[in-house]
């Protein structure tokens, strides 16, 4: 019935027929304090496979290319439509979502097989799963919300020109996947471990302060520009710009512009950064001269 819709259509590529099987190398790590190691899997190729379905097959197979039984690879995913941002990982070395990484295309580019690694800028929890808490913390630091009076009915929102909406909408499509941060040469990994005798709350506080002191990243800078151009959000623009001029703020950006090149949503991140550059310049001058 509905699953009858699985594909037997030939692949759309004009190249040599795709291989019957292919190799997947996965960089695994059992836990944060453990060493990482490579593992090889052989997967039977099917039409229209993506990396998610490869990982699903690997979990079902539960054995390596050499036939050794192994635990399923841990990885993060949810929507599989590239709108939730969960399944970000390094596929053949580059940061992207596993759901939109089509196997046939990967094999054309790299016939030896597929290589999977966890994102390198975030602490590994296990295998391909990383903790992106720092990225969400940045949204707190940037006060990335509209501080409305309350949730009772107070009438319609502010009018907005279609032109402004067209600027805001792409920025609002950001799914916090972390690709821009992974590819940023100025965004470096922070991995802390809990000290002996430290409570969860103390550890969390130490972690938060470490995150706040390090680069906030294109992701949050762009969100600041989203809220600072909203008719209501504008009213608190200064607070967000303060966050961008604090330690780890926009000044850390080195203009490598990888963020915009790897963004799966094609968000104009470098435009946001430059706009934020202008806004923080003016904001700082105003503050300094008390204008």
């Amino acid at each position: 019935m509905i699953q009858a819709a699985s594909h037997d259509a030939p692949s759309s590529h004009d190249h040599a027929p795709p291989p019957a099987t292919f190799t997947v190398r996965v960089l695994r790590q059992d836990a944060p304090d453990q060493p990482s190691y490579w593992e090889k899997h052989t997967i039977v190729r099917e039409n229209d496979m993506n990396v998610i379905s490869v990982l699903q097959r690997m979990a079902a197979q539960a054995e390596t290319a050499d036939g050794n039984p192994v635990t399923p690879v841990a990885w993060d995913c949810n929507c599989l439509e590239e709108v939730c941002g969960a399944c970000t990982m390094l596929i053949n070395g580059r940061t992207r979502q596993a759901c939109s990484a089509l196997v046939d295309k990967l094999l054309v580019d790299n016939p030896e097989g597929i290589e999977l690694r966890p994102m390198s800028k975030f602490p590994v929890l296990r295998d391909l799963m990383v903790s992106r808490a720092r990225l969400f913390r940045a949204l707190q630091k940037a006060k990335a919300w509209i501080p409305v009076d309350g949730y009772y009915d107070l009438g319609s929102g502010p009018k907005q020109s279609p032109a402004d909406q067209e600027v805001a909408y792409p920025l609002s499509e950001c799914m916090s996947c972390g690709c821009c941060l992974e590819a940023c040469p100025q965004y470096t990994k922070i991995e802390l471990t809990k000290r002996d005798g430290e409570t969860d709350a103390e550890f969390k506080a130490r972690e938060t302060s470490a995150y706040d002191g390090a680069f906030i990243g294109a992701h949050a800078i762009s969100q600041v520009m989203l809220f600072n151009t909203h008719p209501t959000g504008k009213m608190n623009a200064g607070e967000r710009l303060d966050a961008l001029t604090a330690e780890g703020g926009i000044q850390v950006c080195g203009n490598a512009q990888n963020c915009v090149a790897v963004c799966p949503k094609h968000i104009p991140l470098t435009t946001s950064i430059a706009r934020a550059g202008r806004a923080t310049t003016l904001h700082s001058l105003k503050k300094f001269f008390d204008l």
């Binding site: 919300w145 509209i146 409305v148 949730y151 009915d153 107070l154 009438g155 319609s156 929102g157 502010p158 009018k159 907005q160 020109s161 279609p162 402004d164 909406q165 805001a168 909408y169 609002s172 809220f227 909203h230 209501t232 959000g233």
Partner: peptide, 21 residues
């Protein structure tokens, strides 16, 4: 209608008419 208004106030970038509605 109240919910849409609320979401509008919360900053959802709803598509706009030329007049801004």
């Amino acid at each position: 209608p109240k919910i849409i208004n609320l979401m509008d106030r919360l900053g959802v970038p709803f598509n706009r008419t030329p007049e801004g509605f």
